[in-house]
Nucleic acid binder design. Structure first.
Lengths: 138, 138
DNA sequence: TTCTTGACTTAGACAATGTCCAATGTAGGG
DNA sequence: CCCTACATTGGACATTGTCTAAGTCAAGAA
């Protein structure tokens, strides 16, 4: 993730304590926090960081392609730092837990030309839903 | 769609003017309105229908499996009355227009057992994104 | 090192979407 | 034609996200 800070500096990003903290919170490849969860964790390290700054920084990271925005439930968006390896998401329909998964093949190929209606289709995202092992014991 | 009203009555649904109007707004298989769009159109026919009633009715229709809830953009959820034929969505990344599409094969088969992590995977939804022909002329 | 400046951060108001509740109304069975 | 359980209403409230004006600071210049 320090790679991330370096890449961002190379792109002219001004390196502030707030941005560093947000990047650190997203460190590790398997988190899927909401903006407010990021804010809560950032506040532990930098108590007076503003909510707006967290939102701004997350938007910038998304625009730069360093973080993915995921909305699996129509509630708060989640931020996924695993942007460099293409993947899809598996969501527990009870507790909302998210796992990164890697389906076989390319979902784009499943959409025939006559089903594209003239769109320049660029991307396909797949969300799998089911009950996770933890929630199944209940 | 009058079929719908009949099915609902058979299931013990109390048939009120408000519910009838909401069902009528969703008539036709290719609309993807937000709750507030449904409310606006319902208001044209029944001026004093409350926003809460529209939300309630839409939730009930979803729970009964008559309407699908679609959230393609992390903003307002959209309601899709085409719940009886399995399909996926193609979204314009500029204007947000949504089309129903029918990919080949079943996306569930693309997720191998070892990528299911013990989840009882029940469903896969695919969202294709690209620029629609209308937005491409710009 | 210190200065300067434009980019960054802050607090809080505001906006969009959705939920809840107590009071009122009414569909449909008897 | 009445009941009464269920539905609707209006408005307060909750959650998530955006905007702005004023203050602050990172990093290059001298």
């Amino acid at each position: 993730m320090s790679d991330l800070l370096e890449r961002l500096r190379d792109r002219g990003w001004r390196l502030t304590a707030q941005r560093r903290v947000v990047a650190e919170v997203l460190d590790g490849d398997h988190v899927h926090y909401t903006a407010d969860e990021v804010h809560a964790r950032a506040t532990d390290r930098l108590p007076e960081i503003a909510r707006a700054t967290v939102y701004n920084t997350l938007s910038e990271l998304v625009a730069l392609g360093e973080v993915l925005e995921v909305s699996t439930d129509g509630r708060a968006k989640r931020y996924d730092p695993n942007a460099r390896h293409s993947h899809q998401h598996l969501v527990c329909s009870r507790c909302g837990t998210i796992r990164d998964v890697h389906p076989t093949g390319d979902p784009l190929t499943a959409l025939p030309e006559r089903e594209r209606f003239g769109f320049a289709v660029a991307e396909a995202t797949v969300t799998y839903r089911g009950v996770c092992p933890h929630c199944a014991d209940a």
